[in-house]
Amino acid sequence: MDKLIEALKRVNPDIDYENEKSLITGKVIDSIDMTSILAEIEDTFDIEIDMEYIVPQNFDSVEAMWDMIQEIM
């Protein structure tokens, strides 16, 4: 999980990823940030995120992203 938070901080260090639970639905990150987040996650975990995973509920919190990564891996 720390590895994921580090990756996310590289995209936008100002966001409190540990505590924010509605990153997408709360409009904390926008579609432009999402592009960078996807690239960072793919690079960090050496995975490919298919379109079927790109839904708000998979990116609303670090925990949701972590679960998605586990599923893909």
């Binding site: 579609s31 999402m34 592009t35 960078s36 690239a39 793919e42 995120i49 379109m51 790109i54």
Partner: peptide
Amino acid sequence: YYPISTSRLVKNISK
């Protein structure tokens, strides 16, 4: 937007 920004072309540019 998302299909293009997650396409191989954009990913390669990013990498």
